[in-house]
């Protein structure tokens, strides 16, 4: 393993310690577990933004907790299968709250990707 690689692994190891503060993340003995790739993508984006100093873990934990609370009060039984949906909502919220992107920019991208998908032949890579 080269130095770059081990550095990135060490960085994520320290981030994982920070993750311990985040309530109820689905995990096994070795760390977080994901049931679908987008969950790992959302997770990795969050780690990266934290590493860039965009927010403290305590802020993230609070943001995520608020999303989970909101979902529960909206009738989500919160059995674990919706955890990363809350995570994604929290990520969108904190990105907007920190002024990185506006809601309308997110909406624009959403529409652009949706249209890109619809004009892309099935099986071809979807590109904007």
């Amino acid at each position: 393993m080269d130095d770059n690689n081990s550095n990135s692994l060490n960085a994520s190891a320290s981030q994982l310690e920070a993750l311990a503060e985040v309530a109820s993340i689905p995990r096994d003995d070795n760390g977080p577990v994901f049931s679908q790739p987008w969950q790992a993508e959302a997770f990795a984006m969050t780690l990266t933004l934290h590493a860039k100093g965009l927010f403290e873990w305590s802020e993230w934990a609070q943001c995520l907790a608020e999303e989970i609370k909101r979902a529960q009060s909206g009738g989500d039984p919160d059995l674990g299968d919706t955890y990363y949906h809350h995570w994604l909502a929290a990520l969108e919220a904190i990105v907007v709250a920190k002024g990185v992107a506006s809601e309308s920019q997110l909406k624009q991208q959403y529409v652009a990707w949706d249209e890109a998908a619809k004009r892309t032949p099935h099986g071809a890579p979807i590109q904007l």
Binding site: L49, L88, L91, V100, A101, Q109, A117, T120, H122, I126
Partner: peptide, 26 residues
């Protein structure tokens, strides 16, 4: 379908990824 489809979640994840990349965060 003869075209692709991304569901709501996939679209949101891609949107975030694109914006954060454009803005140099990831």
């Amino acid at each position: 379908h003869d075209h692709s489809h991304l569901d709501d979640t996939a679209l949101r994840v891609r949107s975030l990824e694109t914006l954060l990349t454009q803005k140099g965060y990831i």
